[in-house]
Design a protein around this nucleic acid. Structure first.
Length: 116
RNA sequence: GAAGAUGGUCGGAGAGGUGCUGCGCCUCGCGCAGAGGAAAGUCCGGGCUCUCCAAAGACACGGUGCCGGAUAACGUCCGGCGGGGGUGACCUUAGGGAAAGUGCAACAGAAAGCAAACCGCCUGGAGACAGGUAAGGGUGAAAGGGUGCGGUAAGAGCGCACCGCGCCUUUGGUAACAAAGGUGGCACGGCAAACCCCACCGGGAGCAAGACCAAAUAGGGAUGGCACAUGACCUGUCUUUGGGUCGUCAUCCGGGUCGGUCGCAUGAGGCGUCAGGUAACUGCCGCCCCAGAUGAAUACCUCUCCCCUGGCUCUCCAGGGACAGAACCCGGCUUACAGACCAUCUUCUUUA
RNA sequence: GCGGGUGUAGCUCAGUGGUAGAGCAGUAGCUUCCCAAGCUUCAGACGAGGGUUCGAUUCCCUUCACCCGCU
């Protein structure tokens, strides 16, 4: 297991675009993971996207909250230092069970790590 | 018991674990608080801030429009009046002005606004036609009062009764208006969510308003030192000659970007008793402090109960929990909404 | 958060209160050996709800969707 790097957040649109353009991705029914190695050292960063495709303000906020809960549980165990993670919500995120999504996130992170 | 009408309340409840945001401290770990009735749409009205402008008024433009009241204000609310609907409880209503002016009314119809006369009716006449008339027919959304009796050549408010309408007076009412009496003898048709007239209201923008702090880089200004050699530009009429600017270094100043702080939650605040008022609402007193994020917190998981749907419907199992998420703050309006509850009232039926 | 605008046929647009129109596209027919072009014919629409009016695409209110601007 890694030593846990400190977690920061992505905030600017340009940072999201950089991850989407240069990064690797993994798709599950509930969300999409995008990963981009920024540097060898330093803190890991994460960002969350929930577009209007999900629904209104209530549904989008709920999707973001569920993604944040997942990240708090899973990401510190598998994050690499100097790496940016972006999670994009899909419509299934409002119906899928939490345990199921946690397993999918873990599997996706491991596969992306192995790929790079 | 059934069918309704109106007003109001709620908008799943509880426990445990792990987290997020703010506040408070015995200051690094605890405690407390943490979405709504619409937080929504942004359709109105305010507070607050900047800006324009002597004040005020006029014009333009926009809005409102029965009467009285409530309110900080409103296009909101309350009470009443008039019109329309319903057996009723009750609902609904942009409801000022058409003898200030302009305009519109397709098609049909003789005629759509100065009234006139197509088929008719009556009189005269052999007839053509002339005169009288508007009862009847037909068109239209709308045709110059309606019904009845009298009257007449036929008819006609021509006369009368009732109704409608206009005007006048009286009474009631703060008023809108209503009632009664008299009078006129039917004129003054409709549309102002057509232009318009009248009365009243409104300067504009909006917390991403606005204020403050302020890094790196670039550039600006001031002062002083150095260089004042060549050159360029500006200026004084040409030349001579003179003045200023363009360089570099140091210090200081102001503007300002990223970023940060304030604005920012004690307020036309909420709850309760009492009093005034039909009510909207207001007043006295007491108690309470009740979200404050900024790529934007208010969550995730588990269990019990409640409700709904489906399944061998006793147990039990599975799925689900309306509309919807604060962003400066209030008062309204409008729109969305599973379901539950309370109060008052109406009509019908049954029983006593 | 705030301000502004637009919804008419499958597409692009006209239409200031009484008939909903034009071009392209579509259907059917004629023409041609066949296709294209041409000619003739037909069908198809006022974003939704309410109000004013005799009558609404048009006037008024509410609502929905889309677009643009400030930041």
């Amino acid at each position: 297991m890694h030593n846990n790097p400190p977690l920061e957040r992505l905030k600017k649109r340009s940072e999201f675009l950089a991850v989407a353009k240069t990064g690797d991705r993994w798709v599950t029914p509930a969300f999409v993971i995008q990963v981009c190695r920024r540097a060898l050292e330093g803190s890991a960063r994460y960002g969350i996207t929930a577009s209007r495709k999900i629904g209104g303000a209530v549904e989008r906020n709920r999707a973001k909250r569920r993604l944040r809960a997942l990240i708090r549980q899973i990401l510190p165990l598998h994050a690499c230092p100097g790496t940016d993670y972006v999670l994009i919500a899909r419509e299934e995120i409002l119906r899928r069970t939490f345990a199921c999504m946690a397993q999918e996130l873990e599997e996706g992170l491991l596969r992306l790590q192995r790929r790079s």
